[in-house]
């Protein structure tokens, strides 16, 4: 089961704190969307509004074409996977997963059968009689997923679902989550502050900051063509090159770029892996330090044209430069993005 979601004109205040600012967002049925942003950016508040735990001050939530803004959680076609999982410690895994079905009045045999099928889907059918405290963190996460999916929601809301896991487990659970989403076809809305996780898993990323949507789109689009400086910097690493808009174009210490709609002081951004040659000449730059990372070499360099700037550069892994070496760098002008300088 799956359904599209539309949020329009959402605003929410906690007392005098403006937590959500003019949120408009459409999510297609069966889409995997991540809400990405630093803590306090409003992503969890937005998820709570979707799940019905917070009634927004303003705006509407439509799920599957029906207005759900004032519908309580129990009556919504959404379920939430909580950050602490909130598995009921006094129930077996089977009873945990079957809980929603039991509330819906399904008979014991039938709901246990369904619960066991879902546990099998997450690879825990052998542990159906265990209790949550006997499980590892990753296993608990799977049970929480199975419990939330058991009631066949149209939309599954995941609040930092991998936050409590260690890095390695987190990476492998990402793939599993994605696989399960493909299998069940439910719309997934997933909150995270980890941009790698967001990129690995999402069809579409919504970048949030200070209660606002900064950017949205496919991971590659946000990475390659971020809408704002915040989105550019939150999605991976970038070099900031100070610049100015003049009559001839955007002036940087390394030459002039074509016109932008912005005025006054601007910043040109260039990702470390984009120093791959091209017509934008940076010129000779002295290596401060360099380290080998397997797929690439990472170096900090000081360009002669702008000696107060330190650029981070990813080079082919072939040869690691020594501190003091001079490199000749250039880039494709299309790889540079220009944003207004933040005040």
């Amino acid at each position: 089961m799956t359904a599209p979601v539309t949020l329009s004109g959402l605003n929410h205040w906690f007392g005098s704190f403006h937590a959500l600012k003019d949120i408009d967002l459409s999510i297609a049925a069966g889409e995997y969307v991540t809400l990405l942003g630093p803590s306090g950016c409003g992503k969890t508040t937005l998820l709570s509004v979707l799940g019905g735990f917070i009634e927004p001050t303003d705006g509407t939530v439509t799920i599957g074409g029906r207005d759900m803004t004032r519908v309580p959680p129990a009556k919504r076609p959404t379920t939430t996977m909580f950050q602490d999982y909130a598995l009921f410690p006094h129930m077996t895994l089977r009873d945990n997963v079957a809980f929603g079905l039991r509330m819906a009045g399904m008979g014991r045999r039938e709901r246990h059968g369904r619960a066991e099928k879902l546990l099998a889907m997450v690879g825990l059918d052998h542990a159906a009689g265990k209790r949550p405290h006997e499980l590892s963190g990753g296993q608990r996460q799977r049970v929480a997923l199975a419990r939330a999916l058991a009631v066949e929601p149209d939309v599954l809301l995941l609040d930092e679902p991998l936050g409590a896991l260690d890095l390695k487990l987190r990476r492998s659970m990402q793939d599993e989550l994605k696989g399960i989403q493909r299998q069940v076809g439910t719309t997934f809305v997933h909150v995270t502050h980890d941009q790698e996780e967001a990129m690995a898993i999402a069809d579409r990323i919504v970048v949030m900051n200070a209660g606002r949507i900064e950017d949205e789109g496919a991971p590659s689009l946000i990475y390659r063509a971020p809408a704002t400086l915040f989105a550019a910097e939150f999605m991976g690493e970038t070099n900031r090159i100070p610049a100015k808009v003049t009559a001839t174009g955007v002036e940087t210490p390394f030459g002039t770029l074509p016109h932008t709609p912005h005025r006054g002081a601007v910043v040109a951004c260039l990702r470390p892996e984009d120093f791959t040659g091209g017509t934008f000449r940076i010129g000779p730059a002295k290596v401060q330090d360099a380290a080998f990372f397997g797929t690439h070499c990472r170096a900090h360099v000081v360009p002669e044209a702008a000696p107060d700037l330190v650029l981070t550069v990813h080079l082919p892994p072939g040869k690691v430069p020594a501190p003091g070496d001079t490199l000749d760098l250039s880039a494709d002008p299309a790889a540079l993005r220009v944003f207004p300088k933040e005040t």
Binding site: G51, G52, F53, P72, P73, A74, T78, T79, T80, F82, Q83, D84, A86, F88, F99, G100, M103, A104, R147, A148, V151
Partner: peptide, 15 residues
């Protein structure tokens, strides 16, 4: 008790 226990139960349709 974590407030999420209550939320989870409500979310799964419990009154």
């Amino acid at each position: 008790l974590s407030p999420n226990y209550r939320r989870a139960a409500m979310d799964l349709g419990a009154n």
